Simulated scan of single mutants.
Amino acid sequence: MTVLEDFAPSAPLVRALDPVVAVEIERHMAMAKEWMPHEYIPWAEGSNYDGIYGGDAWDPSQSPVDGVSRTALVVNLLTEDNLPSYHRALTDTVGRDSAWGEWVHRWTAEEGRHAIAMRDFLLVTRSVDPVALERERMDHMGRGFDGYAEGHVLTTMAYVSFQELATRISHRNTGKHTQDPGLDRLLQRIAADENLHMLMYRNVMAAAFDLNPDASMKAVLDIVENFQMPGNEVEGFTRRSVAIALAGIYDLRIHHDEVLSPVLRAWNVFDRTDFGPEGEKARDALAQFMAGLDAAATQFEDKRAEKAARLAARI
């Protein structure tokens, strides 16, 4: 339950923001580049797996990437897989009419392309265990998506503004960590799409700030304080997130410096002069939270460095 329960329903804001969404769709379509998933897959590297075609069973020694890379790749792909639930959450919040509906369907189609390309690449190159991946996909999608932010356009737009940027960075850093040129190229392509999605949502939320500054500020505080990636329902997500953070793919410092901070700057939340008492209170709470997150990020970095030093001393 969010702090916006006592606010007016989001339907009037959805209607008021519709012209903004229409403009953002035009911008997005002008900037988006068509790309074909099959062109990013090294098909010639493929071979049959065990089963009805009598190939070889997967073995970790066949994977061209290390264990941490496999962890990040699987989490990223499983997150993309849950697209039907995300589509439902968005349409339940903003509807399927007018510009909103056009955008949600376009966004869904583009996100679907990401999962197609990632799965094809990982299976062709034997980067991950196909049996474990499919079982996890079934489990993850069976759990659905309990979107904390869904239900109100303000919390939804605030959440996806941060989430799309976080996803972009996670894909980008995962690609680099794999040290596989082909996989890095694919994930950079996907990250470029995610950045355009972030711009769409961030700009719509900026317009919402102008329409209702206090409610928007409260929504942003609510999401920042409770932010979780959409893959948090994946089995073992916490354990996997620690491994990903220790590898520097996505950690508290990245979350603070490269996700939350730039989006908050884009909305000018700390320099706005149009907040009422409720907005000011929420902004003060946000500043305190960000300071605490910054301190926690520094603490994590120090502990990671200490662990690395201990490991190095054993060699």
Rank of each mutant, 00 (worst) to 15 (best):
V3K: 04
D6M: 07
P9A: 01
S10T: 07
V14A: 01
D18F: 03
I25C: 08
I25A: 08
H28R: 12
M29W: 12
M29R: 14
K33D: 07
E34I: 08
M36A: 09
M36K: 06
P37I: 02
E39Y: 03
E39P: 02
W43K: 01
E45G: 09
Y49R: 08
G51A: 04
I52D: 12
D56M: 15
A57Q: 14
V65D: 02
D66P: 08
D66R: 02
D66V: 08
V68K: 02
R70M: 10
R70P: 06
L73C: 08
V75H: 12
D81G: 06
D81Q: 10
N82F: 05
N82A: 09
D92P: 03
T93S: 01
T93V: 02
V94R: 00
V94L: 00
R96C: 03
R96W: 05
R106E: 14
G112D: 15
I116K: 10
A117K: 02
L123Q: 12
V124Y: 13
R126W: 12
P130T: 13
V131Y: 10
A132G: 03
L133H: 07
R137F: 10
R137L: 11
D139I: 15
M141D: 13
R143I: 15
F145I: 05
D146M: 13
G147F: 04
Y148V: 13
A149E: 15
A149R: 04
H152M: 14
T156K: 04
T156W: 11
M157N: 05
A158Y: 06
S161N: 07
Q163G: 05
A166V: 12
H171W: 15
H171N: 14
T174Y: 04
D184Y: 06
D184P: 10
L186F: 00
I190Y: 05
A191P: 09
A191I: 11
L196W: 14
M198R: 09
M198N: 09
L199P: 12
Y201M: 07
R202F: 10
N203A: 14
N203C: 11
N203I: 04
N203T: 12
V204G: 03
M205F: 15
M205E: 15
M205H: 07
A207H: 11
D210W: 05
D210L: 13
L211V: 06
N212T: 12
N212A: 12
A215E: 11
M217R: 06
L221Q: 06
I223S: 01
E225S: 08
E225L: 09
N226M: 06
Q228T: 14
M229A: 13
P230T: 13
N232V: 13
G236Y: 03
S241L: 08
A243K: 09
A243N: 14
I244V: 11
G248R: 01
I249M: 01
Y250V: 09
Y250F: 12
H256N: 11
D257W: 05
S261P: 11
L264W: 13
A266T: 08
W267F: 09
N268G: 14
V269Q: 04
F270E: 15
F270C: 10
D274H: 12
E278W: 00
G279M: 01
A282D: 07
D284N: 15
A285C: 07
A285S: 12
A285D: 04
A287P: 08
A287Q: 02
A291H: 01
Q299S: 11
F300H: 04
E301S: 06
D302F: 03
E306K: 06
K307W: 00
R310C: 05
L311S: 03
